[in-house]
Computed example of a mutant assay.
Amino acid sequence: MEVINKKLNQLKIGQKASALSKPDYEHHLSNQEQEPVPYSQAQIPVKSPLMFDVHLRHKFKIGSLLNEYYCVLMNKLLVFTDGDNDRLLIFNRDGSYNREIELYGTPWYISVINDSDIAVLYNTTKYIIDIISIKTGTLSHSVKARGHIRVISFENGLLFVVTGNMIDVMNITGEPIRSFPVPPSHVLQKPNVKSKTFLPCPTPSSFGWNIANHKNRLFLTNAFNNTLCCCDLFGSVIWIFNDDTMKYPFGITTDGNGNVYLTCNDSSNVIAISSDGKHHKEILNEDDGLRRPSGICYDKLNDRLLVCDEGNGQAFLYDIKHST
């Protein structure tokens, strides 16, 4: 009896230790990196939430090569940054040229505010966000951040501004709401799959190369270690994802279901990741004309995907057909 009790106590202690050592977020590895699944478990069918087809609607030239284009869709207009010429380029949805808006600085990043206004971040004045009317081409107002801005996102009346290693949340007038750090350094470490340990990443605290929102979720990329991080709107990490097909994630957007779409600059493809980070698939690659895809934007009302490519100076507009 004493031997049995001793074994039971050892089992309970081991269970507690396992519970304490479990990370508070999920790390989803590629299929090649995951450990083998038992045969009986592998037979259970799992329905992927990424059940859709991609159909090209239009392809058209927007500018020169090696111009880091970002893009958004606004009503029936497609808007692109043109950093080479300090302007915004506006096209119609059929790919025809509409007009341009001259800017006082080099545009780095853009984000939709509403049906008529767009937020512009500059590469030259990195503390200022301009809110510009697409209809009139005039400045509505400017928002000043407390530090060097990397990228911005807008959701439900709030600006999410990545400044250094912090994310500042503010309203459209620049009034601060709250701040929280980008995911901490232990989340940014790259996994060593064989040893199941974490190795130091050469660029700690680098999430925030790009940012997107969906409801109560915030998505951030790390271009150096090819990862995508999902956290809540207060910075608590929910899951992180990486895969061998995803090299230098550049642009990011989300659809109406919370699925994430990434343009990958070095692997010349577009990857879709499910809202829970457990499923992914490559939806576009070099065979579709991609060279170095940069900006990407999903039109949630019409299920259309806009992709621009700095490697060939082209833009691609796709229809996304979801399975029912």
Score class of each variant (00 low, 15 high):
Asn9Lys: 11
Gln10Ile: 13
Gln10Leu: 15
Lys12Glu: 14
Gly14Cys: 06
Ala17Ile: 05
Lys22Arg: 08
Tyr25Trp: 14
His27Pro: 03
Pro36Ile: 09
Gln41Ile: 09
Gln41Ala: 10
Gln41Asp: 07
Ala42Val: 09
Val46Trp: 01
Lys47Val: 03
Pro49Phe: 04
Leu50Cys: 00
Phe52Leu: 00
Asp53Gly: 02
Leu56His: 01
Ile62Leu: 12
Leu73Ile: 15
Met74Asp: 04
Leu77Ile: 05
Val79Lys: 06
Phe80Tyr: 15
Gly83Tyr: 04
Arg87Gly: 07
Arg93Gly: 13
Glu100Ala: 12
Ile101Ser: 05
Thr106Pro: 03
Pro107Met: 10
Pro107Glu: 11
Ile110Leu: 08
Val112Asn: 02
Asp115Ser: 07
Asp115Val: 02
Ser116Trp: 00
Ala119Asn: 09
Ala119Phe: 09
Leu121Lys: 10
Tyr127Glu: 14
Ile129Tyr: 01
Ile129Gln: 02
Ser133His: 00
Val143Ala: 08
Ile149Pro: 05
Val151Lys: 15
Ile152Glu: 10
Leu159Cys: 07
Thr163Tyr: 00
Asn165Trp: 01
Thr173Ser: 11
Gly174Gln: 07
Glu175Gln: 13
Glu175Trp: 08
Pro176Val: 08
Arg178His: 02
Phe180Arg: 02
Val182Ser: 05
Pro183Glu: 06
Ser185Cys: 06
His186Trp: 15
Asn192His: 06
Thr197Lys: 08
Ser205Trp: 07
Trp209Ala: 11
Asn210Met: 09
Leu218Ile: 11
Phe219Tyr: 13
Leu220Gly: 13
Leu220Glu: 11
Thr221Glu: 05
Phe224Tyr: 13
Cys229Asn: 15
Cys229Arg: 13
Leu233Ala: 12
Trp239Lys: 13
Phe241Tyr: 12
Phe241Cys: 06
Asp243Ala: 07
Cys264Gln: 00
Cys264Ala: 03
Asn265Val: 04
Ile271Arg: 01
Ile271Gly: 01
Ala272Leu: 03
Ala272Asn: 02
Ile273Asn: 03
Asp276Gln: 05
Gly277Ser: 08
Glu286Asn: 07
Asp288Glu: 06
Asp288Gly: 04
Arg291Met: 05
Arg291Gly: 02
Ser294Phe: 14
Gly295Cys: 14
Gly295His: 07
Ile296Tyr: 05
Tyr298Gly: 01
Lys300Ala: 04
Asn302Leu: 12
Asp303Leu: 05
Val307Ala: 15
Glu310Cys: 09
Glu310Trp: 04
Asn312Ala: 08
Gln314Trp: 12
Leu317Lys: 03
Ile320Ala: 06
Lys321Pro: 00
His322Ile: 01
